[in-house]
Design a protein around this nucleic acid. Structure first.
Lengths: 185, 185
DNA sequence: TCCTGGGGCGTACGATCGTACGCTCCTGCT
DNA sequence: AGCAGGAGCGTACGATCGTACGCCCCAGGA
């Protein structure tokens, strides 16, 4: 029993389509029908492959956050010294806040869901946890935590600004946070 | 002509109800009908007082961001020395990321809209601008900008974490960012 | 006192939504 | 070769949406 062959492909296509649609129209404007149309699958597939809208969203954002974290880990992992790590972090901030509207929008959509529903908060917590672990390859835990928050803030603000701050400011902020003489205030 | 008397009251009630509803169910789950029911006004009032859903949302978030900024300015303004300002900032971070789900959720909903539509980005830009101006009462512009981003990141991460970081970490991060010997990296 | 104009709202319409239900057809066993 | 059963999907239903339209009723001028 079971064709089972095009099953994974179908699911993948649906999830990809869902993410694209969310990026364009937001969670608010996403519906089974629109996702199905974009993915090129019949409407019936929606409720067949996913228990409901919520399950689809959760899977979509799981994939999204995983991919973002993967890039983060890769870039940070490529650094061999704290200074290279600082450079990598600056690069990430400018990458995340750069032209690509898609990742920015999806991130905020996820945060919005996370702010309200624990199931999505789990996703963001895992995301943050892995980011911090990656940063701990180069910095002490407290610094990693602070730096992680700084990256978040810099990315968001830079992306929303009409005149994004230049790289020098990013670099300086990173230097200040990571240039730690002691662990106490 | 025109009763015109209960007009302002009506509008206010509608906006308040809209914000409450958005905080609870998100922009996605907000509709004219639900807002009207919660505000205790007839459905017809919705399209009468507001050109459409979008206009209502814009007004609601305008009021929301103004009120947040006002609190920010008040707290920062009360400080008379850089050290007091640092304390005030720490207090704000812990206030924003504290128990009140409402402000957190509304902030993210706004950011999500801002990430996609320029009209809402205008709101967040003004918010950031005023925040930075307030911080410049105590710090130089570059530091203010970095500190503003740090506040953002710390608040978001603290709010989403299961075990929010303690105040010492917040204080230390603020100290590191504001403890600036030079302006260049 | 009567007329009039517009603020304010009740209601109805067309579109769109999520989801359940049952049919089809293919696969693999006997 | 024939049958059983489940994967996969077409479709229809009930709910809910945003918004347009037209009525009501009162303020203010003549």
């Amino acid at each position: 029993m079971a064709t089972g062959q095009n099953d994974p492909e179908r699911r993948e296509r649906i999830i990809t389509a869902a993410l694209d649609l969310i990026a364009e129209e937001g969670v608010a404007g996403t519906s089974h029908r629109k996702v199905a149309a974009r993915a090129g699958v019949p409407l019936g597939s929606m409720t067949y492959h996913f228990g409901g809208m919520d399950e689809l969203l959760r899977e979509a954002f799981t994939r999204f956050s995983s991919s973002i974290v993967a890039v983060f880990e890769e870039r940070i992992g490529a650094a061999t010294t704290p200074d290279e790590a600082r450079e990598a972090v600056a690069g990430l901030v400018h990458h995340l806040s750069g032209g690509n509207q898609r990742e920015l929008v999806l991130t905020h959509e996820l945060y919005t869901l996370a702010a309200r529903k624990p199931a999505y908060r789990e996703l963001t917590r895992e995301w943050m946890r892995r980011s911090r672990v990656a940063l701990e390859w180069h910095f002490d835990p407290a610094t990693a935590r602070q730096l992680d928050a700084l990256i978040e803030g810099l990315s968001i603000h830079r992306a929303l600004e009409t005149e994004p701050h230049d790289r020098a400011l990013t670099t300086e902020a990173i230097a200040r946070i990571t240039r730690a003489p002691g662990t106490r205030s």
